[in-house]
Amino acid sequence: MLGYVIQRLLQAALVMLAMSALVFAGVHAIGNPIDVLISPDATQDIREQAIRRLGLDLPLWQQYLAFLGRLLRGDFGTSFVYGMPVLQLILSRLPATLELALAAVLIGTLAGVPLGVYAGYRPDSVASRAIMAVSVLGFSVPTFWVGLILILTFAVNLGWLPAGDRGPLLEVFGIGWSFLSLEGLSFLVLPALNLSLFKLAMMIRLSRAGTREIMLTDTVKFARAAGLTDATILRRHVLRLISIPIVTVFGLELGSTLAFAVVTETIFNWPGVGKLIIDSITSLDRPVMVAYLVLVAFLFVTINLVVDLSYALLDPRLRRGAAA
């Protein structure tokens, strides 16, 4: 087990190194890195100072090492627009996005898995066909369009829920959260639903396919022969067996949800990282873009790592065998 963990950690570090090289190459390939790192409004004096400070007059490999060093120290430079350190800026927006993404993935999983298991258990029933229709829609209708419809229906026409911003925040550990108060929660509902639809569709498909396959196995037949009710079989046997791919997807989707939040945050004016990156793209705030890329890559590598390791915990066959 320890050897497995170490091996995975090394792999993750390697991928991060490759990603950083890619971002570095990107920054250097696309025009002058000075333009990326220093505001175009800066005076000639400041520019030259920065060139020396950032070592842009050094050979490329030394620059890369310096870039790596700055990354490791968390020094991503200063935002042109906000005039504050980029890392600090992104971190201040992160809780909003995390809250939104987590809520979305939770809704998608908690609703999607039971629906999918049912659709796999009774594939030909009317309810299952309806469930599958929802999943087809969830997959193909663009997120932003669903967001518009949600706003139109629940905020404009019915006036039940607010759309836009985070509402009042309650502070815990110095960070503000929406979900802790009822009113804050009402601000979270629509964007979280919007973002969850794709996850819902995916969880439905995944658990339906898994359940269909498992229902045909001898394991289920044997459990039936022992007199277990179908409800018990679904709850104890099937759910446990499909949990492995589901936890994988849960983890991986958490990452991609953070990315997809870009769209939802823009529509609902949710002040998270996604909104920040869109704003920084339109305002050419390049240090924010670079930092965002590196952080997202880091996030993905970390999530992949965690998912790989939790495999080992869920599947007793892997727990002993270590790296296979």
């Binding site: 196995t217 001898d218 394991t219 037949k221 044997f222 459990a223 022969a225 022992a226 007199g227 277990l228 046997h237 446990r240 067996l241 492995i244 869920l314 599947d315 007793p316 066959r317």
Partner: peptide, 18 residues
């Protein structure tokens, strides 16, 4: 299971691995 029980051919396939 209570009054009529069944044993299958391949326990590898019938017992739940997890």
């Amino acid at each position: 299971g209570r009054r009529i029980a069944m044993v299958f051919q391949d326990p590898q396939a019938t017992l739940n691995p997890v």
